[in-house]
Simulated scan of single mutants.
Amino acid sequence: MKILLRKIHENRNPFSIRKEGLLCSGEFWRSGKHAVTVDGTVEGDIGLMCDRCGEAFSKHISEPFHVEVVDRPLKVDESLDVIECPDGIVDFDMICESEIASIQSEYHLCPQCEGTNDFEMEF
């Protein structure tokens, strides 16, 4: 789903997108002359890799997210939860894919490794 940033108004609008078997849903609204705020949640069963043993496993998640989409260049000192869209198009599919990739890149342990402390630590 893509919407021109200039067409988004101050009232809150719902969105719901299915990506990779997950439901990405929430609300978006105009939060400034050049900004749109997107609040949402990624829910469902996600496929992950255990960072300890390397086995694939599935985990149910419900992760909230908050991003701002702007149609102007960012300054270095601004928040990391900002997405630039220089073409003025807010791409909700890309936002959801980005949030899913962010969750998958975090450190995850499978149920077998989660309860064990049997590993080496370097000092």
Results as ranks from 00 to 15, higher is better:
24 C>L: 14
25 S>G: 12
55 E>N: 12
62 S>M: 13
49 M>W: 14
48 L>D: 04
38 V>C: 10
73 P>M: 04
70 V>A: 06
30 R>D: 00
59 K>A: 11
56 A>I: 02
55 E>M: 10
41 T>V: 15
58 S>M: 12
53 C>K: 06
23 L>G: 07
53 C>F: 01
50 C>T: 04
74 L>E: 01
42 V>C: 10
73 P>D: 06
65 F>V: 02
48 L>Y: 04
72 R>Q: 08
51 D>N: 15
59 K>E: 09
35 A>Y: 06
74 L>Y: 02
71 D>P: 01
46 I>G: 06
75 K>V: 07
60 H>S: 13
51 D>M: 10
35 A>H: 03
46 I>P: 02
78 E>N: 00
70 V>Q: 01
50 C>M: 12
74 L>K: 14
58 S>K: 13
31 S>A: 09
39 D>I: 15
72 R>G: 02
64 P>K: 15
42 V>N: 12
53 C>L: 10
75 K>M: 04
24 C>M: 11
25 S>I: 10
32 G>Q: 08
63 E>Y: 06
34 H>T: 08
69 V>S: 07
27 E>W: 13
67 V>K: 06
35 A>L: 14
26 G>K: 09
54 G>T: 09
64 P>C: 06
27 E>F: 14
45 D>I: 14
44 G>S: 05
48 L>C: 07
46 I>F: 12
24 C>E: 07
33 K>S: 09
40 G>K: 05
31 S>Q: 03
47 G>C: 10
48 L>Q: 09
72 R>E: 10
36 V>K: 03
70 V>R: 08
23 L>P: 02
39 D>H: 15
67 V>T: 05
24 C>Q: 10
54 G>C: 11
32 G>R: 05
49 M>P: 05
63 E>W: 00
57 F>M: 08
53 C>R: 12
68 E>T: 10
63 E>R: 08
36 V>T: 01
49 M>R: 13
78 E>D: 07
62 S>H: 13
31 S>L: 02
65 F>T: 00
32 G>S: 04
32 G>L: 08
77 D>M: 05
66 H>M: 05
40 G>N: 08
47 G>D: 13
70 V>Y: 01
78 E>Q: 08
72 R>N: 05
32 G>M: 07
64 P>L: 10
29 W>N: 11
65 F>P: 01
62 S>P: 03
64 P>W: 11
25 S>W: 04
70 V>M: 12
26 G>P: 03
73 P>Q: 07
28 F>W: 07
42 V>Q: 12
41 T>Q: 15
